[in-house]
């Protein structure tokens, strides 16, 4: 038996490291910042990071659901721009000015409905017409931002609206509102995945779509559902970005967000072939990506270099995933 012991221990330590690789990475980044980044341990730093990470986390959670079914959604950034462009148009319209309360409500609901419709488009393309997800979502990736820019004539829309800005600048218990929002969404999605029939079907479809269909799973509906949730969350993130900036810039809102979201999901432990939906992992992934960005920025490294660092993180995450396979 003495021979069998080393293999056994390595087998047990292996998964342990793999499962907590993200946490280890987070601790390393935090330790580095505490030691080297000036003014890191200040409340202001926490605020900045929470308010910035919330949008990545929200989009990454939707992306995690889509990836769990074996799909991918490239259109999230464009949907953010579209939703973000719509909101100021609505509350700054004549209607919004005449009825401020209704205007704000409509500025929240209508963009989310439009985002949901985008998701339905993606879902129908993928689930009904059997288009490859990467191609299906490329359509809105390209055209979504275009529509947003057409709607705003390509202009930056600035505004001053206290109620709407609460979405991006409000505080609850001293912490940014959108942080709480992201957390609430995470808890809800976690329960959806682990407790509901919808969640079980999501994982089953990603695990073996043919088997799921033959066991009576409503594959088409569930797939359309996850794309709608993903797009809806992207729309919400778009609104938050606009609220933070008190301005809507259709050209920049959500730019490259699809990459951040996919990276966060993968770093968080989502398998691109589907079957796993680590919701809190997505948040962890988003935090890591945000912190790396912040660390480099705070230490005077240029934004372009930060992109390379991000690629490094994805590489590491993919490597960890590969070692998972026997």
């Amino acid at each position: 038996m003495s021979q069998s012991n080393p293999t056994q221990t390595s087998l047990q330590i292996g998964p342990l490291l793999r499962d907590h690789g993200g946490v280890v990475a987070l601790i390393v980044i935090l330790a580095f910042n505490i030691l080297f980044t000036p003014n890191f341990l200040q409340l202001q730093t926490l605020f900045v990071n929470i308010s910035q990470v919330a949008t990545i986390a929200i989009v990454a959670m939707g992306m995690t659901l889509v990836i769990a079914t074996g799909g991918i959604d490239l259109s999230v950034g464009a949907v953010m721009a579209l939703a973000g462009a719509l909101a100021p148009l609505i509350f700054q319209s004549q209607f919004g000015v005449d009825y401020p309360a209704l205007g704000i409500a409509a500025a929240l609901v209508v963009p989310l409905l439009v985002a949901g419709a985008c998701g339905m488009f993606n879902g129908v393309m993928v689930a009904v017409l059997n288009v490859q997800p990467i191609i299906a979502t490329l359509i809105l990736f390209i055209s979504g931002r275009g529509i947003a820019q057409v709607l705003t004539n390509g202009n930056l829309q600035t505004f001053s609206n206290k109620s709407f800005s609460y979405l991006g600048t409000g505080k609850v218990l001293g912490l940014p509102f959108q942080g709480w929002l992201a957390l609430a969404i995470a808890v809800i999605l976690f329960l959806v995945i682990s407790r509901t029939i919808f969640g079980r079907y999501v994982l089953a479809i990603g695990g073996n779509e043919r088997a799921a269909r033959l066991a009576g799973g409503p594959v088409t509906k569930v797939k359309i559902g996850v794309y709608m949730i993903c797009a809806g969350l992207a729309g919400l993130a778009g609104l938050i970005v606009v609220a933070i900036n008190s301005a809507s810039d259709a050209a920049r809102n959500g730019n490259l967000m699809e990459l951040d979201a996919i990276a966060a999901a993968v770093v968080g432990g989502a398998l691109l072939q589907g079957g796993r939906a680590p919701i809190f992992g997505a948040i962890l992934g988003a935090v890591i990506i945000q912190l790396v960005k912040y660390t480099l920025l705070a230490n005077g490294v240029e934004d372009e270099v930060a992109l390379i660092a991000k690629a490094g993180i994805i590489l590491a995450a993919v490597y960890v995933q590969q070692t998972r396979k026997e």
């Binding site: 029939i197 994982l203 089953a204 033959l214 066991a215 009576g216 799973g217």
Partner: peptide
Amino acid sequence: AEGIIPGMSVRENLTLALLP
């Protein structure tokens, strides 16, 4: 190809058709 969902547990596989 058409039966098991390999990554899921015995429990989840067993109740897949029964879920509704």
